[in-house]
Every structure is written in structure tokens, then in C-alpha cells.
């Protein structure tokens, strides 16, 4: 198994055969910010971003020995938007089509991951003129697929909201009912909801969860409405959220919008008790007090092993793994600021 770590200064890959002993690679694509990775068996797709050279997609077909740029990376053609960052790359498990979410917020699709086309139905959405960026930019950071219905797709955009398509991306409905609006000087609307990360229940596609700017929410009707699930959390502010195939749902609370470091100065994960509908501390193995780091929205992921692993990386460059119910372990190395994590299982 490999664990891909995208950082501000390149891509690093951990390899393991037992999830106990980890080997860290040399940096790949050194100098690029690696903002997204889609690792596949036959190729690795990597979203590379640079403040001078812009955002493009590169790929490797030799496990990182060499990379080449895609023939036509995502690029807006008929509007004033720019592609500033590759936020998310996924492959539809039913159709095989590739999707990329970018900042400025938009969705691109491809049949071969080489030639990317804008999904204009989203760019031309009736609410588009109301979309505003958050601190991390106007980013489309989450793309989720219904496990059996290829026409149902969810998106999350910060600081805009959650969207759902029921026709394979031809049209999109805003799905923010029940989510508190961010207070601005703009007229209230159904958008203006700063969703930080959203996940789909592994076995019930009616259930979704999201980490919001001011809250943690769940939906029991595929996003039609949302309600808060915050009991037990030291703070309702945070960025990443991840769920395993055995329904373990995790968040990592930060102090607040204004103080974006570990809540109460402690690096802690919280796991949701679906029966009791409350969160409990699941931090065994993590360092105690005196931690003021941050974990970014894509810097937590899971594997699909029988005893699933959960992984996260910090802006301080530390990577942690939790296998099943064992305590968290810190992986070797000290990396640049970590943007994202993804797993490739053999």
C-alpha cells in the first residue's frame, strides 16, 4: 500500500506492506505544490500548483520516476474565470469518467484524464454571481458519487455550499437547507455556505456529513436538508472529515475561525457515535497539550482494508496513522506543509 502526501514543496510517498513499518520516498515534483492526487493502478494523476506557473495536471506512468503534463489541463475558455489550483481529482466508479474540481470554483471532466472539458452547467449556475471565496479561495474541493446511480453527483464549494445533480451533471441544485448562513453584508441567499469538507456514508447514500465553517452537520435525505451533530466536540470549527467503510466518522476540531489551530492547544481527533449521536475523543497516541498546528481539508483520508486505516497530515509536516482501533502512530519524516493525503492499495 502507498500513502501519497501532497505538500507545499512536492509529492512524498510512503510505502508499507503491513501498515506498521513505513518507508518514505524522496520528494517528487519538488518545487511544485501538490494540491491533489488521484493514484490509480496504471498511473498517478497529480494536481500541481505554483504561484508563478499556475495550476495543471501531471501524470506518471512509472510510479513517480517521471511525470508529464496532461495535453489539456483544466482551463476556462468562454468566461473570465481562471484555474488557480487543482483541488480534487476523482474517477467515477460506475462510468469511468474523470472529474476535477478547481479554484476558481468549477468542475472539469475527461474520458482519458488527458483532455479536460469544463462542465458548463455548473459554471453557468444561476447562483454563480453570488459565489464568494473563503480564505482558501473559491474552491470546489469535494466530489462524491452515488454508489449505484451514475446520475447522482454531489459537490461542495467553499464558501458557496453543497450541490447535487440527479442527471449526471446536466444541472445542479443547491443543497444547503438547514445550514446556517455565513453572515456577510450581502443579501441572504441559498448559497454563501462555507462547506469545508463533505463525505458520503459508505453504505447508505442517503446519509451525508459535512464539516462546516461554523458547525458539523448530517443529512438523512441525500442533502435535501441538514441538521447539526456537534455534541461532544470542543469546537465546531475544523476542516477535514473522513469516514471509513465500517462507518467510523472523524473530524479534527480547531479552536475557531479566528484561531485556526488545534482546539484547546491539543491535537485531537473525534469520532462520531452514530447510536448516541455524539462525538468522543479518539486521540489515543497523539501528542498531548501544546500543539497549535492545523490540518487542512484534504489532509485526512482512509484506506479500505478490513481493519481500516485513517491518516492525516499537519501543516507542520507530521503524518499520523491509526489502524483499526489501535493508537495513532506518527510516521517517519518531517515534511513541508501538508495539503492532502490519498491512499493507493495494491
Amino acid at each position: 500500500m502507498k500513502l501519497f502526501v501532497g505538500t507545499e514543496k512536492g509529492l512524498f510517498v510512503y510505502s508499507t506492506s503491513d501498515r506498521k513499518s513505513w518507508t518514505l520516498s524522496e520528494p517528487m515534483l519538488a518545487g511544485w505544490e501538490v494540491s491533489s492526487v488521484l493514484p490509480l493502478k496504471d498511473k498517478w494523476l497529480v494536481g500541481t500548483t505554483h504561484y508563478v506557473y499556475g495550476a495543471t495536471i501531471r501524470q506518471s506512468k512509472d510510479e513517480g520516476k517521471s511525470f508529464s503534463q496532461c495535453e489539456a489541463s483544466p482551463s476556462y475558455k468562454d468566461n473570465d474565470f481562471n484555474v488557480n489550483r487543482i483541488w480534487q481529482m476523482v474517477k467515477h466508479p460506475l462510468t469511468g469518467k474523470y472529474y476535477t474540481g478547481v479554484a476558481e470554483a468549477g468542475l472539469f471532466e475527461s474520458d482519458d484524464a488527458e483532455l479536460w472539458e469544463e462542465v458548463k452547467s455548473l459554471s453557468a449556475h444561476e447562483t454563480r454571481s453570488l459565489w464568494q471565496p473563503g480564505k482558501g479561495g473559491l474552491c470546489l474541493h469535494t466530489i462524491l458519487f452515488h454508489p449505484t446511480n451514475p446520475n447522482r453527483i454531489w459537490l461542495a464549494i467553499s464558501a458557496v455550499g453543497a450541490f447535487r445533480s440527479d442527471d449526471g451533471g446536466k444541472s445542479w441544485q443547491v443543497k444547503t437547507k438547514g445550514i446556517d448562513a455565513i453572515i456577510t453584508d450581502e443579501k441572504p441567499s441559498e448559497v454563501g455556505r462555507c462547506v469545508h469538507k463533505m463525505v458520503l456514508h459508505p453504505h447508505n447514500p442517503e446519509k451525508l456529513f459535512l464539516q462546516y465553517h461554523h458547525g458539523v452537520y448530517a443529512s438523512d435525505n441525500a442533502g435535501d436538508s441538514w441538521y447539526k451533530i456537534e455534541e461532544g466536540l470542543p469546537s465546531n470549527f475544523g476542516f477535514p472529515m473522513a469516514i471509513t467503510h465500517d462507518e467510523k466518522l472523524f473530524v479534527i476540531p480547531l479552536e475557531s475561525d479566528g484561531l485556526r489551530f488545534s482546539a484547546e492547544g491539543q491535537l485531537r481527533t473525534y469520532q462520531f457515535d452514530h447510536e448516541a449521536k455524539r462525538w468522543y475523543d479518539s486521540s489515543e497516541g497523539l501528542e498531548g497539550k501544546g500543539n497549535y498546528g492545523t490540518i487542512l481539508r484534504d489532509a485526512m483520508t482512509v484506506d479500505t482494508q478490513k481493519n481500516p486505516g485513517v491518516y492525516f497530515g499537519t501543516t507542520g509536516g507530521d503524518v499520523f496513522a491509526r489502524i483499526g482501533n489501535e493508537p495513532w502512530q506518527r510516521l517517519p519524516g518531517s515534511l513541508p506543509r501538508i495539503s492532502m493525503l490519498r491512499v493507493l492499495e495494491s
Binding site: H50, V52, Y53, G54, T56, Q69, S75, Y76, N82
Partner: peptide, 18 residues
């Protein structure tokens, strides 16, 4: 041609900071 996206903006001007 793959250089173009990295060096020029959408208007065909040199990107900032280059």
C-alpha cells in the same frame, strides 16, 4: 505547446512574477 499555460496568461501576456 505545454509551456504556454505556464508562461502566458489567458490574454497571451507573460504571467506575473515572470
Amino acid at each position: 505547446p505545454l509551456l504556454k499555460v505556464h508562461l502566458l496568461d489567458k490574454e497571451g501576456k507573460l504571467r506575473p512574477h515572470l
